[in-house]
Each structure stands twice: as C-alpha cells, then as structure tokens.
C-alpha cells in the first residue's frame, strides 16, 4: 500500500483527457475485478494497459465503453459522459470473443464501422465501399474483401477488425489485446497503423500482454492489478518496482533481471 502513487490529475486534466476514469469499481457478482481505479489517458499518445491475468484489464476497457456496468465510478471522454462521445471512440474487441463462423464477408465487417453514417436504412453507396476498401488497404487486406471472415488466419482477422475501427474515423481507439495470437507480420502491420494514427493526433489505448514490447510500442503505461499500480510515461511507470508490485511473484525473474 505504501507503494501506491499519489492520485494523479486535477479535475481540469479530466476535462481535457480523451478518457478519464475516477473511482471505478466493477464486479461480476463476487469480489470486485476492478477496484477504485483512476485513469487519465493522455491525448495523442499510445497507452498500454498492462497487468497479470485476471487483473481487470479487459474489464476496465469494457467499463469505459459502457459494455459492462460499474458498481461505482465516473468515466468521461473529453469531459463528457462516454455515451455522448461514442461517435469519437472506436473499439477493437478481443478476437476470441467473436463467432468467426458468422456468415459475413470482410468488407461487410468494415462497413459495420460506418453504422453511424448508414443508420438503419441508408443504402451502402459506392463511396462507402471505397472508404471501406481504403481502410482495408491500410491494413493490407484489400484482396480479401469478399472472403467470409472464417476463412482468414487469426492475424488477418485482427487486421479486419482494425480496418473496421479505422472506418469509424474516431479520435480515440480502444483495443483489447490486438496482438494476441497474431503472426509477426500482422503485429508489425498493426503497430505501424497505430503509430500512424497517433502521429495524426489520435489517442490509442491498448490492453497489452507482452511485456517485452511495451517500451518499443507504447509511450505510456497504465499498470493494473485490480487496483491501479502505476500510470505515466513508460520510462517512469514501467519499472522493475512497479512491475513487481503488479505481478508479485508471478513475473519471471528473467524479465526483471533483464530490465535491471
């Protein structure tokens, strides 16, 4: 407990942050999976949400999007309730949460990202299709547009989901384990797209599992193990001490030794 950092951020920081969480507690019926968490995402940066299995990383993300209902806490995007800002937020769910047998083609998945434009009944016009193809182009999946999604490899599926997020033309991108179970080529393709988005001024937040790539990929880290452990630039928040606090004995000594 003594290791706990001071609460960051004044309320005016929360006013401008693309995503600010205050006092978030989430439970699925038993003990809280996320307990009294504060998070202030820095605009125009790439933030990794890092922590051990069961630390509440995905739950934190889902609560931010209104997918799970918190017991307590306030979540704002650019100072307003997230529900009112959903048009500026794109979400890439965990690949394993999807039924890949679903009878839908790649291009149709990307077009789902344009739901806000298309609404209930507006026709899909050539310009929508072109925009969707451009998104597929950006992730190197143009040639797969007419495939059923189940025919793709895991990495290709992940790229299609990223293309759908691009089609949302959002300012804030929330990704749940975008590199889980993908091939090396996909991983570098995805990180290139995310860095390009950041360089355009957009904000990226990703649940991330691979501690060895945190420094190479991300600007900032949010370390969580039910409670917030540390938050800040990689250089100050992603240290041997904070990692030990987040992972306890579960972190391999080899990794911390390498860092030390």
């Amino acid at each position: 407990m003594s290791m706990r950092l001071a609460r960051p951020g004044t309320s005016d920081k929360a006013e401008t942050s693309p995503l600010a969480v205050r006092g978030l507690t989430v439970s699925y019926g038993g003990d809280p999976v996320v307990f009294s968490v504060d998070m202030t995402v820095a605009p125009g940066q790439m933030t990794a949400i890092v922590g051990p299995n069961g630390a509440g990383k995905s739950t934190l993300l889902k609560a931010c999007l209104g997918i799970v209902k918190p017991l307590a806490g306030r979540i704002t995007a650019w100072g307003k309730p997230v529900a009112r800002q959903s048009s500026r937020i794109a979400y890439v769910p965990q690949r394993t949460s999807i039924d890949w047998d679903f009878p839908v083609t790649v291009i149709d998945v990307v077009l789902m990202g344009m739901y806000r434009d298309l609404g209930l009944l507006r026709r899909v016009r050539p310009q929508h299709r072109e925009a969707a193809m451009a998104c597929l182009d950006r992730v190197g999946m143009r040639d797969f547009a007419d495939r059923q999604i189940g025919q793709l490899s895991g990495g290709q599926q992940q790229r299609v989901f990223l293309a759908r997020a691009l089609a949302q033309q959002a300012d804030l991108f929330l990704l749940d384990e975008p590199f889980a179970g993908v091939d090396a080529a996909t991983e570098s393709a995805i990180i290139a797209v995310l860095k390009a988005l950041r360089d355009e001024g957009r904000t990226i937040v990703a649940v991330h599992h691979d501690l060895s790539t945190v420094e190479a990929y991300f600007d900032r880290v949010f370390l969580i193990n039910r409670r917030r452990i540390a938050e800040g630039p990689v250089s100050t928040a992603f240290t041997t001490d904070t990692l030990h606090e987040a992972y306890g004995g579960r972190l391999s000594d080899g990794f911390t030794a390498r860092r030390a």
Binding site: I67, P93, Y115
Partner: peptide
C-alpha cells in the same frame, strides 16, 4: 455478430 462492438456504438 459482435455484441461488445454494438454496445460501444451505443
């Protein structure tokens, strides 16, 4: 198809 994504759209 994707309940989480649908929720994120509101």
């Amino acid at each position: 198809f994707d309940e989480g994504f649908a929720r994120s759209l509101g």
